[in-house]
Design a protein around this nucleic acid. Sequence first.
DNA 1: ACCTGAACACCGTTCAAGT
DNA 2: ACCTGAACACCGTTCAAGT
Lengths: 242, 242
Amino acid sequence: MTTPTPRSRRRRQVLSRERIVEAAVELLDTAGAGALTVRALSDRLSTGSGAIYHHVGNMGELLQAATESVVAAALPAFPAPRESATDPGAEDTGRERIRAAALGLYDAVAEHPWLAVQLAVQVTRSPWGTVTPRIFESIGECVRTLGVPRSGWFATTSTLVHYILGATSQNAQPSDTAVLRDGAQRAEFLDSASQAWKSLDADDYPFLHDIADQMRGHDDREQFLTGIDLILAGITAVGRPS
Amino acid sequence: MTTPTPRSRRRRQVLSRERIVEAAVELLDTAGAGALTVRALSDRLSTGSGAIYHHVGNMGELLQAATESVVAAALPAFPAPRESATDPGAEDTGRERIRAAALGLYDAVAEHPWLAVQLAVQVTRSPWGTVTPRIFESIGECVRTLGVPRSGWFATTSTLVHYILGATSQNAQPSDTAVLRDGAQRAEFLDSASQAWKSLDADDYPFLHDIADQMRGHDDREQFLTGIDLILAGITAVGRPS
DNA sequence: ACCTGAACACCGTTCAAGT
DNA sequence: ACCTGAACACCGTTCAAGT
């Protein structure tokens, strides 16, 4: 009849799902996607490999949980505050909040390069899990305030989400190892990429040839926002045909 | 001094890189991403597992080659015919060619669901390999004819490519197994997805709640094109501010 | 040169056994 | 209930040995 005392429940509770997910994210961040193994994880947590399975089911579920925790942290406070669509300036703040959510995801992928591939994996498993719903909700809530007719909400939100996921994953660090936040390192990478494009056959790739210099000098993050603004401009243009 | 006769060269040449890549694509298509193993591949090709490594280096290289071969087949004839940007109607044919290239990739992912994740993988390894360059070139070549100033070519092309890759991967079959081209199957999936959204907490996900019905009825492919047109409208709007 | 297939060093996952 | 860690059935890759 009596519930177990807190003391007895807490006695040997050293491991938990949260601790495991946290350790998994650390492992992914510091050593890359290939370094997350059950053995490495149980080593780091000083347990047996079987202990992991008491809390997470399997590797895929762990990867999903790791992705969800990082995505949840990257998105703005949730749920978003409701605003009346008739407020003056509501459209501008809607656009601003879309930019903020997009940048949150963009920066998360920059900090956690393994996210690039994991987002693609999780999103095709949509809509199970919270990754796709969270992202969709964050963006969709803002689209509502943009003067788009109700019938266009889903298509408009989808377009933004697809662009955001595509862009963040393409701009991710091309490394299987640890995070490199060094700007010089990024410049070096762009430089070699530019060289690679220039060395392609000019007859097969005339456009890449022309544009190789432009690509060397560009700022990923700024250009990511340029793309967002391009789509927002399209939303406005389609909503009010001239 | 004499080159080997064709006969002697051909004698035992049963295996080749091409045949291996072809078999890999078949395996991926029919049995899913998890089914591509060196053992399964050498079984299907009736050789020893070591023979594979005489032609492809390692598994990652094989996956890259499989992706490249499917992407190359999906994109329109390459390189694209040159058109003068001053032609009347050049912008319209540019837009039409962008839609064609985008649909080519979209349909390829529908036929080869494993492409969704592989595109994300290959594209972060950019610009090595031919996947990213090919896609960029196809789209960029058309962007040139759209009246975008030269300084905007790279950003505009990037926006389109990011959207295309993001959308194709999100709309891929959510299955790890064989291809299901059955329309009814897709409708069933959308139905359960819609149910899942409806069953989310209405306070945390008000937008998804509102929109669940819209998402059940939608046509992926049509909506994919709607997104393309939204971005094209943005390109026009930004190029000619009112 | 091309191929064979056993061997090696891993991997995720399970499960009897402990506390 | 929670954890241990050996065992199992895989995996990619290598390499001496064959033709």
